[in-house]
Nucleic acid binder design. Structure first.
Lengths: 208, 208
DNA sequence: GAGAATATAGACAACATACTCACATTTTCC
DNA sequence: GGAAAATGTGAGTATGTTGTCTATATTCTC
């Protein structure tokens, strides 16, 4: 009886065993992230990725059964990077302002590698099949950091989740907009974003 | 026998003169907006648009010389709609909170028609060629409303432009995120977004 | 109503892209 | 060293997309 697993969609077609093939896979993912970031989903073709990675198209399909599994690998790697950066920024007990500063710093760092990749992965790249799960999981964990912070610094307990959602999407909006304009490392913008976070979190609930 | 191959590369290949052709053009643009909104730029094919509009592919190319001129028409129409909605919300002198409420209301209304169209037009649709001008013009006028408001309500004059940029991209981020989740008309979210705006604009500049 | 102007339809050519396959090259391991 | 496994190659195939062309249908002018 074939114990066929439903869909080896995001799975690799073949496991790389030697060092050079692992390097090939890594080069493909990195090149894929680069192509996706610079050309967007519409310009993301398997031939271009193979070319940018310096391997043949055949090698690409040796390890990734189709285009979606490749973008899935890119997504997973990038989200892991972002989450680890964010997690670092938001541990321990700190004053609100300190937390905001480190959060902004972390977000900027995470987006400096491939400025628009994050947004492309969230908005453009298709979410069929198995990616929904990974995506939701990322969003959930991502939001957790914000919720924890919000719970820690806000006086009122009500609507913490909504506040966290509003805060996180506001921060994302600013970061993405800045990334689009190559303004990620403008100090003035960083400062203002920190102020936005502080003002909202500390002030939310007293407006009347 | 004089074969006049004078091909004016204008916006439209041919001006619709009869009522039915004007209806055809309108149907194509509306269908295009719908396809772009639901399927994204990658799924935006001329055949699908023609199909959704209930016309043949030939009719589409009768009026639009190529795919880009079609997306340009969609962009222009949508941006005009959004700007008029925003402009209405932000005139006269009002208390800050009132302004924020009407701004949020206007943004939500503008995005309720085709929830993700705005974002697709900003991020995915190609920006080469002549669209840059229209795009920049929109961004500029768009930002003007924010800058005017910020100048009116903030105590400190410094960095008004940066503040306006941060505020507008934060609002956009929240709206886009809500649109993605079909949460645009959640009252709790609207309230929190209003509070975010008020807290930032009134509080910005007093954090030591 | 006749003929000109305008509008629509859909087959088709030219091209791009995802993915395959038969074979070449490198590495492992005895 | 050499067989076998692992890895790499790139022209080739199937499919889909843009944009053209010509035949047909509808509306306008008189």
């Amino acid at each position: 009886m074939s114990t066929r697993i439903a869909k080896p969609r995001s799975r690799m077609r073949k496991q790389p065993r030697q060092a050079r093939s692992r390097a090939t896979v890594e080069a493909i993912i990195e090149a894929g992230a680069h192509v996706l970031s610079t050309l967007g989903w519409a310009g993301f073709t398997t031939n271009k990725v193979a070319d940018a990675a310096g391997v043949s198209i055949g090698s690409l399909y040796q390890y990734f059964p189709d285009k979606l599994s490749l973008v899935e690998a890119i997504r997973r790697r990038h989200f892991d990077q972002v989450l680890s950066v964010i997690a670092e920024s938001a541990e321990d007990d700190k004053p609100l302002k300190r937390f905001a500063q480190e959060l902004v710093r972390g977000m900027i760092d995470a987006h400096s590698i491939h400025p628009t990749l994050h947004q492309v992965l969230l908005d453009e790249a298709p979410g069929d099949r198995g990616s929904r799960a990974a995506h939701a999981s990322f969003q959930s964990r991502y939001l957790d950091h914000y919720t924890a912070a919000v719970a820690q610094y806000r006086k009122r307990r009500k609507d913490n989740e909504t506040v966290a959602r509003v805060l996180s999407s506001a921060v994302e909006g600013v970061i993405h907009n800045a990334a689009r304009r190559d303004m990620l490392d403008t100090p003035e913008l960083q400062k203002q974003l920190v102020e936005l976070i502080c003002a909202y979190v500390s002030g939310s609930g007293r407006s009347a």
